[in-house]
Design a protein around this nucleic acid. Structure first.
Lengths: 145, 145
DNA sequence: CTTATACTGAGATTGAATCTCATTATTATC
DNA sequence: GATAATAATGAGATTCAATCTCAGTATAAG
């Protein structure tokens, strides 16, 4: 018996699987592999990093899978200030974080801040029709102090 | 007499000229043309847009000029969520805005919000060594309602 | 098992940004 | 104003991200 390693990983991969079927998409092996890899990440990963880590899965498939997951609200696209975008799973809990990029070494760290979220919600109330928001802070990490 | 159209435009182009000389850089025509074009914009413009609008100025020169202006603190690089970065002048007054991107048509609008700035400054006080910050909100503009 | 078709992936293509290096323009000096 | 040292330029090659194409493949329904 080969145990399904994904069921141990958490709830996101499972809910992703469900949403994929509900949306009428096939549960193809390459798509599952992209889902599983995203599930294992704690923060954003680029499309080409996913591509590089998945042998026998084509670039086009990786980009397509990400795009579909994004449309299903399962994945968020984040702008890390570099040349490539990052992608990360959207937690079913609604929890989300923003990013601090170290301008020295390029390291990306997640952070959360309630006052910031509140301020952004206020902007929403002031009349802008916001779909989503994204905050990227730039500075120096502890290593590059 | 050909009147210098730049002196009528405002104070940014002038201070940029000064800082450029102070930094030991030459006042070359291509650089001046990049400065003048940036001076005319109210919001961010991409490097290739600058390149396209300036005949007889090479891509490399545009990118170099922008990079130098950025180092001198005269220009800010902004991430508009698309494929290319935008660049905009840094007002001597210290005034700065963030951006709302319409996910439908791609239009970028500037916005300012004091509570948001305050929340970000709080994060600074909490221990992160921030150099700069950048907030991009996504939604639908009035046209794409 | 068979069939219709959604999905895949190798490779070509587009677009942004960077790099190279021979030529040109700027500025200080005479 | 002419001259020399060298900073700056720009055409084109290169790199990297992302998208597109289309013949071949795998999926799921019957």
């Amino acid at each position: 018996m080969t145990p399904t390693s994904t069921e141990e990983t958490g709830t996101w991969a499972e809910s992703a699987r469900e949403r994929i079927s509900e949306a009428g998409l096939r549960r193809s092996t390459p798509r599952q592999r992209v889902v599983d890899l995203l599930d294992q990440q704690d923060c954003a990963i680029t499309a080409l990093e996913i591509d590089a880590r998945l042998d026998r899965v084509g670039r086009a498939t990786v980009y397509r899978a990400i795009e579909q997951l994004e449309e299903l609200g399962l994945v968020r696209k984040v702008d890390l200030g570099g040349s490539a975008f990052g992608y990360e799973k959207v937690e079913p809990s609604g929890h989300h974080h923003h990013h601090i990029v170290c301008d020295e070494c390029g390291k990306v760290e997640p952070f959360e801040d309630d006052a910031l979220e509140e301020a952004i919600h206020e902007i929403h109330r002031k009349g802008f029709k916001l779909e989503s928001h994204e905050v990227t802070l730039h500075g120096h990490c502890s290593d590059c102090d």
